[in-house]
């Protein structure tokens, strides 16, 4: 489904490449290795999540597909909370509140879809 609209597909590929290039430059300029690695990890997970349905990774097994996509949501959320929001260096209560959100919400949504 994602591959049917060529114009905007090529735009997405260009944007992705621009992101990689600018990130490499910024990383070398500002020595932000931790942020850059997290950002590349987030981009990779986003692409995997978006294309997992198109490439039918799970042989039309909707339940596994939903769990997979929601697990990726948790992985991405954890990275944003800990690295971008810098809550890894914050008091435990606040880190737990935000991490609880990115764990609980996907779990609730998974329960709604699967039960």
């Amino acid at each position: 489904m994602l591959f049917n609209k060529d114009g905007i597909n090529s735009t997405a590929i260009r944007l992705f490449l621009i992101c990689i290039l600018t990130g490499s430059i910024m990383s070398s300029l500002f020595s932000t290795k931790k942020n850059t690695v997290s950002w590349l990890y987030l981009l990779l997970l986003t692409v995997i999540s978006a294309y997992s349905g198109t490439f039918n990774f799970f042989d039309d097994n909707k339940q596994v597909f939903v769990l997979f996509v929601l697990f990726i949501v948790f992985l991405k959320g954890q990275k944003i909370v800990d690295i971008f929001m810098e809550l890894i260096e914050a008091p435990k209560l606040w880190r737990r509140l935000l991490l609880g959100y990115v764990i609980l919400l996907p779990v609730i949504i998974a329960c709604i879809y699967l039960l």
Partner: peptide
Amino acid sequence: LHQMSGLINTLALITSSYFVAI
């Protein structure tokens, strides 16, 4: 819906967030 536009928006927002972090 146009799924690719959703993907572009995700990449754009994550990248924007990265630049705010640095």
